[in-house]
Computed example of a mutant assay.
Amino acid sequence: MKKLILFFAALFLLTSCSFDEDNPQFHVAFVPVVGVEMPEYFVHGENYEIKVKYQRPTDCYFYDGFHYEEKNNALVIAVQTLVIEDSNCASLDGVEPEEASFNFACSPTYGGSSYLFKFYTGKNEDGTNSYMEVEVPIAQ
């Protein structure tokens, strides 16, 4: 009988616990790029550090790297964040933008005369994605 009572007590305790408190919910979001530092030109076969400034809207957004996508002749780049779904987020309006960087290798076999980078800057008033376009020529 004691074992049966102990079993039901343990079962009650396990079912009354919430695992959501220990595992916060989150989703992925892109944040606006507000500035970039690019070289004036690229040289075939060389590597470059590209610095990107971005703005997090609240302190519930955490930097998670860059999202890259090739579209036609352009490299589309966005700053990816993980957003903790919490109602106690503090606004970061007025706070200086943060900076992250990535390495870009100028291919020795690339046949074009320049690279076009499109950095995600958010959504415009129509709700479509907007970009900061930077074209960097390749030195001959």
Rank of each mutant, 00 (worst) to 15 (best):
T15H: 05
K71W: 06
E70R: 09
P24N: 08
C17Y: 07
T109F: 12
N73F: 08
A78V: 05
Y41H: 11
I50D: 09
V95N: 05
E96W: 00
N23L: 15
N23H: 13
A29R: 07
E70M: 09
H44F: 09
E21L: 10
F30V: 06
H44I: 04
C60V: 03
F19D: 14
V31I: 07
Y63D: 06
Y54K: 01
E46W: 03
F66K: 11
I84D: 04
A105P: 00
V36G: 02
A78G: 15
P24G: 09
F26V: 10
V36Y: 00
T15W: 05
L82C: 01
F102C: 13
K53G: 01
D86I: 09
N47L: 06
K118L: 08
G111V: 05
A74Q: 14
I77C: 15
V52D: 09
T15D: 01
G65H: 00
V31M: 01
E21Y: 10
V95F: 03
I84W: 09
E98T: 05
I77W: 09
P97S: 10
T109V: 13
Y68P: 09
I77F: 12
E85K: 05
Y41G: 08
N88V: 10
F19P: 00
V31T: 09
F62H: 13
S91H: 03
G111F: 01
E21S: 10
D20F: 04
E49R: 07
K118G: 03
Y115H: 14
P57C: 03
D86R: 13
K53S: 15
A90V: 11
S107P: 02
E69G: 12
L14V: 13
F66V: 12
R56L: 15
F26G: 13
V31K: 02
V28P: 00
L11H: 00
V28D: 05
C89R: 01
A90M: 11
E70Q: 12
A100T: 11
P108S: 11
K118C: 11
E21D: 07
T81F: 02
V52G: 09
N23M: 10
N103R: 06
L82D: 12
G65V: 01
E21N: 10
D86F: 04
I77V: 15
V31E: 02
F117A: 04
G65Q: 03
I77L: 12
S16G: 01
Y54G: 05
V31A: 02
I84N: 10
K118R: 15
P108R: 07
F104I: 01
